[in-house]
Design a protein around this nucleic acid. Structure first.
Lengths: 210, 210
DNA sequence: TCGTAAGTTGACACTTTGGTCAGCTTTTGC
DNA sequence: GCAAAAGCTGACCAAAGTGTCAACTTACGA
């Protein structure tokens, strides 16, 4: 038999933990930390409540596990920003990748947004430091582009904030986005149009060329 | 004596309701709807809990009163966008006004952001419709500018989303903004710099002119 | 000054909910 | 096959938190 004891054990652990975390993302993102009841996570994951506590020792532990995990997964979206690439291509790809990511992972995105809005209570020092360093590295890249005359002189840090803000908005504040666009739901094509507008506005400006 | 009975009565009512709403903004913005305990609002407002329930029949009523009130106060920030003004001036003034407003009213801003992120559960139909109509009117103005050749053709609705996103970010996601800017706290000058960057980026684009 | 309405409040009832636990079943390693 | 470890779970508890209430005080109007 191919599956060893250890294998099987890990399989059960992993499967159930994943079920719990997945249900947690769903509920936490809709209700926030305090609004979430473990009973609902248990229900969603198809496990009895006591079983949830067998794998996680507290509500906070589930929550922080989710937050920590999704921070890692964001690094990918920033990949397009490298010193070797051309600014125009890099920003185009970044905006597209980020919008696509938040569209597909809207729940995680909202969960994180809610966490930050309420003061980043449960965001671990380590994870914050990681994000700061990733930002620093990308700021350096942009400053390099500016020094090389490939870009107008701009404050790179504020620029990244604008990019983050614009790309998060559609998923995090979906009700507002829907209202502003006069749509009942956002579809892939709305995100396409969003990417287009953000990119065009950023790269070309909104005034007629002098 | 100038103050009549009616006056006095209103004075007490108004004063206490205001105390409660003010405390509510503070606590709701930090803890969210579910994380907020009426006891804490009572404490902050210096009133006993039972007295809070004398003026508001439920937690939800306090919350929705706050949300409804702050939606009105936002209309002011959009004042600069009128058909008569020049696009460049209008956007400049709008961004400045909005950033200044959110800086001074960060708690309200976060409270509203949290409400939207969690699905706008308590946002009244009437208030949503009001916001939609305000947006519509401003979209018409921008479309007018475009038709008159004063602006590059751009999707006005996505443009307003970008503006909203960028101007809300610094207050709503202050911890992230601090990290990105490598500051421990945001000061007025940081908002100044933010306004500058947003305006420059929007109006001129980030690439060297062709 | 006195009756009435408004305002105040400590104590309490009731529900929700995070977390525990003791005993059970299943799986594993040998 | 069997002991030990891992996994499972219904029942329970204590804390917290919303909303109520009946009695009390203050303010007002005539």
């Amino acid at each position: 038999m191919a599956r060893t004891a250890r294998d099987q054990e890990e399989r059960i652990r992993e499967r159930n933990r994943r079920l719990i975390l997945k249900a947690g993302i769903d509920v936490f993102s809709r209700k926030g930390f305090d609004g979430t009841r473990i009973a609902e996570i248990a229900e969603k994951s198809g496990l009895p409540k006591a079983n949830v506590y067998y794998y996680f020792s507290s509500k906070e532990e589930i929550y922080t596990a989710i937050v920590a995990h999704l921070i890692e997964s964001w690094d990918d979206a920033l990949k397009p920003i490298t010193a070797e690439s051309e600014p125009a291509d890099a920003f185009r790809n970044y905006v597209r990748a980020k919008l696509e990511y938040t569209r597909r992972n809207a729940a995680e995105s909202r969960l994180f947004a809610s966490e930050i809005i309420h003061g980043a209570r449960f965001l671990k020092k380590k994870d914050r430091e990681h994000m700061r360093q990733v930002t620093d590295r990308h700021v350096e890249v942009v400053d390099g582009w500016i020094a090389a005359g490939k870009m107008m002189p701009t404050d790179a840090r504020h620029l990244f904030i604008m990019l983050w803000a614009a790309t998060q908005f559609y998923s995090d504040f979906e009700p507002l986005a829907c209202d502003a666009l006069r749509k009942s739901r956002l579809k892939a094509e709305d995100y396409e149009k969003a990417a287009e507008t953000v990119i065009e506005t950023l790269l070309c400006g909104i005034l007629p060329k002098a």
